[in-house]
């Protein structure tokens, strides 16, 4: 398994401090925002949340390998990716509050998605978006664009037919795509050992004729460098790569899940000691690029900024009820117009 930063924060390869500090900031913001979204769900203000705590290195590191014109096909646990893409916090909060500023108009419980940031709204069923990510990548090639696609999914997705058909397709047609399997050890309650008999999910790429690599998913530098190589390879027209980022889902599957039913605290504690944010901080402190004072201030600022952003977002009005009848077809057929008339009479 590819690792650059040791758990103690020693590095085999020392990256540009500005890049590391920027990634660190985004990981902290993603963590704080994730905890706020959990809280908002507990307060009854948002419907459901799939927390990303513990997975910040996998999301931020791989997303930093992208150019701004590259396309992201996330699943529902990619909050760190959106923060790394510099989506304003308010956009993400509005999405979750399902208010009038929600780009998805209250119709999807994915964390986020907005075409204007080249983030294709995520589906909820796992793996369903892998074939469309491949089709999208192939059409970039057809249009002779140098953009590439990065496609995120979890360990559970690798058991689905969609995954196999799509990766086979990508191999045959040399799609400019990077698959990032965020192996967080669990598909809801089912451990990865029940999804597959292989030790490392990256070996699955062998069957489709392209390279697979496993990286320490709690090592943001390893995630970044592995993704960068894969993105450059895709951009050169040399086809796809499957990256397995080995990490851990510290929180529940979603706010509707109680993980104490299927895993013990010692396991969670062991992974907490491998926290990706702590690891990068150790490295930054070791190189004298960061101080504990600065660190405390960053966490405080993040907390304060996000709290204020949420307060502002809560002032947005709710979605109008008749909006549920929009966007089914390009032009509404007569029967939907009729439904809308009946609907407005009900109000």
């Amino acid at each position: 398994m590819y690792q650059v930063l040791s758990p103690e924060g020693f590095a085999e390869e020392e990256l540009d401090p500005r890049l590391l500090l920027s990634m660190y900031r985004d990981m902290v913001y993603a963590r704080v925002l994730d905890r706020w979204l959990m809280r908002l769900q507990r307060m009854g203000k948002i419907g459901i949340h799939a927390p990303s705590e513990g997975q910040e290195a996998a999301g931020v590191g791989t997303a930093y390998a992208l150019g701004e014109n590259d396309w992201i096909f996330p699943l529902y646990r990619e909050l760190p990716v959106f923060v790394a893409r510099k989506v304003p916090i308010s956009d993400i909060v509005n999405r979750n509050l399902s208010n009038r500023a929600d780009p998805l108009k209250g119709r999807d419980f994915a964390v986020y998605g907005d075409i204007k940031y080249r983030i294709v709204p995520a589906p909820i069923p796992v793996a369903v978006h892998i074939p469309s990510a491949v089709g999208f990548a192939l059409s970039l090639k057809y249009k002779k664009l140098s953009e590439v696609v990065i496609n995120y999914f979890g360990d559970g997705a690798t058991s689905k037919g969609d995954f196999h058909e799509a990766l086979n397709f990508a191999g045959v047609f040399k799609a400019p795509i990077v698959f990032v399997c965020v192996n967080n050890q669990y598909a809801i309650s089912v451990p990865v050992s029940r999804q597959t008999a292989v030790e490392r999910l990256s070996v699955k790429a062998v069957a489709y004729g392209f390279e697979g690599v496993s990286v320490d998913g709690n090592d943001v530098v390893a995630c970044y460098l592995a993704a960068k190589r894969a993105v450059e390879k895709a951009r050169r027209g040399e086809g796809p790569t499957l990256i397995e980022a080995v990490t851990y889902r510290i929180g529940p599957h979603t706010t509707a899940d109680d993980p104490s039913r299927y895993r013990d605290d010692e396991e969670v504690e062991m992974w907490r000691r491998r926290d990706p944010i702590t690891r990068l901080r150790s490295h930054l402190l070791r190189r004298g690029l960061w101080s504990m004072d600065e660190d405390e201030k960053l966490w405080q600022t993040a907390e304060e900024t996000i709290r204020k952003t949420i307060e502002e977002c809560e002032k947005n009005p709710p979605l109008p009820p008749e909006s549920i009848l929009e966007d089914v077809y390009a032009t509404p057929p007569w029967h939907l117009i009729e439904e809308r008339e009946e609907f407005s009479q009900l109000r």
Binding site: V128, F136, L140, Y142
Partner: peptide, 11 residues
């Protein structure tokens, strides 16, 4: 799925 992706990208 590939048709969906291609259509999303304007084909």
């Amino acid at each position: 799925g590939a048709a969906i992706g291609a259509a999303l990208n304007g084909l």
